[in-house]
């Protein structure tokens, strides 16, 4: 039972980092980035490939963040002039491209995925048990969330929110919107990459299907339930979305029913949130 609870706690921690990083772009920055899950995947694959090629785990973790971050920065350049639906479609396309690369490159082993990913090892000690991984992931999450929180409450964070509210006005006050937006996507993608690394080394198996539209909808649901532009919202959303379907395991439903029942639960939750609390539980802004 403790192992099961530890498993849920680890997932909540990983999804918290991922959701807060997504909220940084979508909620704080107003950048409707539907390619965010690709950064999660890039982080997972980068860390896996580095560590499986004898790179120390911490370097693999940072490499995952940086490669995802640089990809986010590059994505910002051609999409800087886009907004709303156009930006959403462009970034969704980016997500499909990345998934397609994962599915077709030999280094990623295509649709077969990569099994046997080693657990992290620090100072010669393997972080193998759920409890030790929970402590380790909590520490990484603590640092990640602290950094993102500080950034968003800094002067830079104010510029990010100003651009979200009114890009034209921000430009008229001397703000280089391209620089700020590119940096925002770098930071958001960096931490999505970190979450991806934690995920890969916890699950010990990755495949392209784990970083597709289905997973993106799950992460978006977290920030919609929790509310946009809210750290607390993203974390509470991650807790709710991770725990919500768990009782289904214990009520004896046939396995063929559990999957659809999960989706129905998510749908009911989302519809209720949209109807009763359009800004989400702790949201500061509405998604336009």
């Amino acid at each position: 039972m403790m192992s099961y609870l530890g498993h849920l706690a680890i997932l909540i921690i990983i999804y918290s980092i991922l959701a807060v990083s997504l909220d940084l772009a979508v909620g704080r920055g107003g950048i409707l980035n539907l390619g965010h899950i690709a950064f999660f995947g890039i982080g997972a694959y980068t860390s896996t490939l580095l560590v499986m090629n004898s790179v120390p785990f911490l370097l693999g973790l940072l490499g995952a963040g940086f490669l995802a971050g640089i990809t986010g920065f590059i994505l910002a350049l051609p999409t800087a002039r886009l907004s709303g639906d156009y930006l959403a479609v462009a970034t969704l396309g980016f997500g499909f491209i990345v998934e397609s690369l994962m599915r077709n490159l030999s280094v990623t082993r295509g649709a077969l995925g990569i099994p046997g990913i080693p657990k992290p090892s620090l100072l010669g000690m393997e972080i193998a048990s759920n409890f030790s991984y929970l402590v380790f992931a909590s520490a990484i999450a603590g640092v990640s969330l602290f950094v993102m929180h500080r950034l968003m409450h800094s002067h830079y964070g104010r510029l990010v929110e100003a651009i979200r509210d009114d890009k034209t006005a921000a430009k008229s006050l001397g703000v280089s919107t391209l620089s700020v937006t590119s940096l925002t996507l770098f930071i958001a993608a960096f931490f999505a990459g970190i979450a991806g690394s934690l995920y890969a080394h916890y699950i010990t198996f990755i495949a392209p299907g784990m970083f597709n539209l289905h997973e993106l909808i799950f992460v978006f649901s977290i920030i919609i339930v929790g509310g946009l532009a809210s750290f607390r919202g993203a974390i509470v959303g991650a807790i709710i979305m991770t725990l919500l379907p768990e009782p289904l395991r214990f009520i004896g439903l046939p396995s063929s029913i559990i999957g659809p029942a999960r989706q129905m639960l998510f749908a009911i939750l989302l519809l209720s949130i949209i109807y009763f609390k359009p800004k989400g539980l702790f949201g500061q802004v509405e998604l336009e």
Partner: peptide
């Protein structure tokens, strides 16, 4: 400059609106 229709940062406070100018 200012605009024909007021362009303020609706979700920021008055203080934060001013501080954007001092970035």
């Amino acid at each position: 400059r200012t605009f024909q229709e007021p362009h303020v940062f609706d979700n920021l406070s008055l203080r934060e609106n001013i501080l954007v100018s001092r970035h």
